[in-house]
Design a protein around this nucleic acid. Structure first.
Length: 294
DNA sequence: ATTTGGTGTTGTG
DNA sequence: CACAACACCAAAT
């Protein structure tokens, strides 16, 4: 059960226990399934065998958003609104708005640097990657870092999912050396999920380790302003390969630094939420979380 | 509503 | 070096 790594005790406990996450997850699933019926808090609590007040409290603490607000935020209508409340905003224009609009919340102030082609070909050879598991608002998170910055962020579904999660990440750079080091990764977690620190403090350094094409796609995602979304074909157009939307989808799916590189802000052309490497439920949750803070 | 055909890149043999 | 697999999309049933 707990054979993989010692449970983190150095972590600041702003996050709910795994149990809470499990409950919240059910709530989210229920809401997103039945949002058409606009279920009341009572209905939901009934369905899950919880008391309404308790449920309200847990959910709000977890998401910074009441269940009611979340319900509204998460309808398809919301997803479509993200794409642009006027006509479909082409990526260019949303960049304009995102970059030049006064006081507009831009994205995380992330400075990114890609690895050189040589380093990429080495598949992580000669690279030391420190990693650790930490609780996060969206479940247990696996953080990976090199001395040049944050390299990977993934989500594990439950305790048993740790190994699978680590495998999934580690096979991306098979020749790297992996060292468990909670102390090194803890600072990243603290910053990444605290929106107040995104633009004031010094920028977050990340390293994008991937093929040339993938890196271009990820850089394009980083330009999407907070609280906005784009379609896969928008991204394809932005990187100068307008017919490559499918390839873009594949590349987005391999994004190693989830949440930081906002792959959750990529939607299908109709505004429908399409896939997510760590589960559609989590994608909805993240979008809802952002909607509550926009 | 569903199906079908055209896509670019990547991982595998 | 070919080939199947993809978090897609538009056009034709």
């Amino acid at each position: 059960m707990n054979a993989f790594a010692p449970t983190p005790e150095c972590v600041t406990d702003i996050t709910p226990s795994g149990e809470d996450y499990a409950i919240v997850k059910q709530v989210i699933e229920l809401i997103t399934l039945d949002y058409r019926d606009q279920p009341s808090l009572e209905n939901i609590a009934d369905e899950l065998g919880q008391s309404p007040t308790q449920l309200q409290k847990v959910f709000t603490r977890w998401a910074g958003l009441s269940p009611k607000a979340f319900l509204q935020a998460v309808t398809l209508d919301h997803a479509k609104r993200l794409l642009g409340h006027e006509q479909l905003p082409l990526l260019e224009t949303s960049y304009e708005v995102g970059l030049s609009g006064p006081g507009r919340l831009h994205d995380l102030f992330v400075t990114h640097e890609a690895m050189s082609p040589g380093e990429w070909k080495a598949k992580g050879g000669g690279l030391t990657i420190r990693y650790g598991f930490h609780p996060s608002p969206f479940g247990l998170a696996l953080v990976m870092a090199t001395d040049r910055g944050l390299a990977g962020l993934a989500f594990a579904d439950d305790e048993g999912g740790r190994d699978a999660c680590f495998e999934d990440m580690a096979k991306r750079w098979p020749n790297a050396e992996y060292v468990p080091d909670q102390a090194a990764t803890a600072p990243y977690i603290a910053r990444v999920f605290d929106p107040d620190r995104w633009h004031r403090e010094e920028p977050l350094r990340v390293v994008l380790i991937g093929s040339d094409f993938q890196v271009r796609v990820w850089q394009s995602l980083l330009k999407i302003p907070f609280g906005k979304a784009v379609t896969y074909s928008d991204v394809a157009r932005d990187i100068g390969q307008p017919t490559a939307s499918r390839a873009v989808g594949a590349a987005i799916g391999r994004n190693p630094i989830s949440f930081v590189v906002p792959c959750h802000r990529a939607l299908g052309k109709s505004g429908a939420l399409t896939g997510y490497h760590w589960g559609l439920t989590r994608k909805r949750a993240i979008l809802g979380w952002e909607a509550g803070r926009a």
